[in-house]
Computed example of a mutant assay.
Amino acid sequence: MKMRQLTSLVLATIVCLIGLIGSTQAQLQLGFYANSCPNAEKIVLDFVHQHIHNAPSLAATFIRMHFHDCFVRGCDASVLINTTSNNQAEKDAPPNRTLRGFDFIDRVKSLLEAECPGVVSCADVLSLVTRDTIVATGGPYWEVPTGRRDGVISRSSEATANIPPPSSNFSRLQTLFGNQGLDVKDLVLLSGAHTIGIAHCSSFRNRLYNFTGVGNQDPSLDPRYAANLKANKCKTPTDNSKVEMDPGSRKTFDLSYYSLLLKRRGLFQSDSALTKDLTSLGLVQKLVEGPIEEFFAEFAAAMEKMGRINVKTGTEGEIRKRCGVVNS
């Protein structure tokens, strides 16, 4: 009997420890603001529906902004904090200098502050705006459990160190995603966001003009595609024109991105890298061969998983009054 009691006590202790370890994620919940700010999610959705049609390309920007935020100190809206005289913030790091739409986030936050002062975090605003703009422009829906709190630290150097650059090979991608608790399947699925939006020549021009430092072209890039880019977009090594990441389909959230990967037409080296590993290549092939509904469902699961990375909840961080400024 004593041995059974001891065993039960040990098991109960283990269960409690597991509960404590998982408590941070458990504190995120669907409808977190149901009592404290019942109209919060409707305010976000209504604003998106009223304004995204004026600039539908912002959907691609927000999903990138959300991704870049979560990879640095977790999903805490630190990417929204402005640089000060004594600190260069994440938004001014090289990977984030082409982000835009900060005013859109600020306007949503202002509406929420007017409705429920000091209640809804900027981290949740960014998460909800990302999902709602993607859905409003024809992309997949995913659940966004809320309850995130905002970070108070934002460092440019950390963004540069943690956000996967477009020049990444597969090993580096796997490491940087792994650091955030994401696996190869998440890597392949989240890369699918490149089915919408644009890039600049500076993000991949070495693949066209100086891949190994001797003025050569990346041999893994389809020659006809490379020639087309040189002729029409990145006409010189210093050109920084805008280029569709998914040519001919950049406004549609579909499987075209993956089909292009198999034709060696991924724009970034990091895109091409997905075909260099047998596991990731197999996942790409499976997506291309499957129905769009399956991709949408799996992408949704990966987005929800990403949205939980190192979130601050409870008494951690703060609820910023303005998204660009830490509370004084």
Rank of each mutant, 00 (worst) to 15 (best):
R97S: 09
A114R: 12
S78P: 02
D69R: 04
T146K: 06
R64S: 15
F67K: 07
L111S: 13
A55Y: 13
F104Q: 06
R131Q: 09
E113N: 13
L80Q: 01
Y141T: 10
P95W: 09
N54P: 03
N54I: 09
T84D: 10
F62R: 00
R100E: 14
F104A: 11
L80W: 00
I43F: 09
T130M: 03
W142S: 00
V48L: 04
D106C: 12
V120A: 08
W142L: 01
K91A: 12
N86F: 11
T83V: 09
L112E: 03
E143W: 10
G139H: 09
H51C: 02
S78I: 05
A59H: 08
F104M: 10
I63P: 02
S127W: 02
V79N: 08
E90I: 15
E115L: 02
T98C: 00
L80K: 01
Q88V: 13
S127R: 01
V125G: 07
V79E: 03
Q88Y: 11
N87S: 12
A89Q: 11
V135W: 06
D76F: 03
D106V: 11
G101H: 04
I43N: 11
W142F: 09
V125E: 05
A136E: 07
N54G: 10
I105T: 07
F104K: 01
K91T: 13
P95K: 03
S127A: 15
H49F: 09
D103R: 14
V144E: 07
L111C: 06
S121C: 07
R131C: 08
E90N: 11
P56H: 07
F71Q: 09
I52N: 04
T130V: 09
S127K: 02
H68W: 06
T130W: 06
H68I: 04
R131I: 03
S78G: 14
A123D: 00
G74K: 04
L126T: 00
A136W: 05
R107Q: 15
R100T: 11
V72N: 08
G74E: 01
H53L: 13
V144T: 12
K91S: 14
N82R: 14
V48D: 03
A114W: 06
G138D: 08
A136F: 08
A55K: 13
L99N: 15
L80E: 07
P145G: 02
A93W: 05
N82E: 14
L58W: 04
V44R: 09
D106I: 10
R131W: 01
R107F: 13
I52H: 04
V125A: 07
V135D: 05
L111K: 15
T83R: 03
D124E: 06
V44Q: 10
